[in-house]
């Protein structure tokens, strides 16, 4: 847990010294690997593990996107704030250390979950780009936000396909009408709209930035809201 505490502090202090974001990322990566080794499985079950993975993924993607930026401090500061909030919530959530049920011991499940959270992280990065664009009005931020959404949408679609294959093998059907599946469809249709809307000139700039921010709100509800508030096979 002390590694998590350190990573939280690193994200927090990254608000003053942006490179500390990378320190937070390295610490969280170490935590994820150590926990995986301890459990003997992918540590991605329950809010504790998934929030840490989301924070680390956001930091990792932000680091990759930051290479293309000249003035990256505001972007990295916002990502560090979100990563710190996710880490703080993770630290207050109980760890799930029980072994996985046999039906979850499959590469389809692992791919499904990993890709889902990587896409959530990319949608988060896109929202941050949207926020920074609304302040600075630099077109490069809006363009990078679009790229984050495009890659995130690809990973999200793959996650849904892998989830469908896994559900078919585990329960004989690829679609089971749970609230989580409905919200996942909402998220997928939303980002389909985002990508198509960007083909029209009218939507470029501010509307795209706003759509990116609103998209992350739907993402977080699909991830946490549905899991915690509604009964579903996807609940924690």
């Amino acid at each position: 847990m002390w590694i998590l505490g350190l990573s939280f502090a690193a994200y927090l202090f990254a608000l003053w010294k942006s490179p500390l974001l990378y320190a937070g990322l390295v610490l969280q990566a170490a935590y994820i690997f150590s926990r995986g080794a301890e459990l003997g499985r992918l540590p991605l079950v329950g809010p504790h593990d998934t929030l840490i993975f989301l924070a680390a993924s956001m930091a990792a993607f932000a680091a990759a996107f930051a290479i293309a930026l000249k003035d990256r401090s505001r972007f990295l500061n916002t990502v560090a704030t979100i990563a710190a909030v996710c880490t703080a919530f993770a630290m207050t959530s109980p760890q799930q250390n029980t072994p996985l049920p046999p039906v979850l011991k499959t590469v389809w499940f692992e791919c499904h979950v990993v890709l889902a959270f990587m896409s959530y992280a990319l949608f988060g990065v896109a929202a941050v780009f949207g926020g920074v664009y609304l302040q600075d009005r630099q077109n490069s931020f809006e363009g990078l936000g679009y790229r984050a959404v495009l890659i995130g949408y690809c990973l999200f679609t793959l996650s849904m396909i892998f989830g469908g294959i896994w559900a078919y093998l585990a329960w004989g059907t690829y679609w089971i009408w749970t609230p989580k599946e409905l919200w996942t469809t909402i998220l997928w249709v939303y980002y389909s709209f985002y990508l198509h809307a960007r083909l029209r000139q009218w939507w470029m700039g501010r509307p795209m930035a706003v759509l990116g921010i609103a998209g992350f709100a739907i993402t977080m509800f699909t991830y946490l809201g549905v899991s915690l508030l509604m009964k579903s096979s996807h609940s924690f």
């Binding site: 909402i186 249709v189 939303y190 389909s192 709209f193 198509h196 809307a197 029209r200």
Partner: peptide
């Protein structure tokens, strides 16, 4: 685009 909005 309109159809996607209505489906949403």
């Amino acid at each position: 685009l309109w159809l996607l909005v209505f489906s949403l």
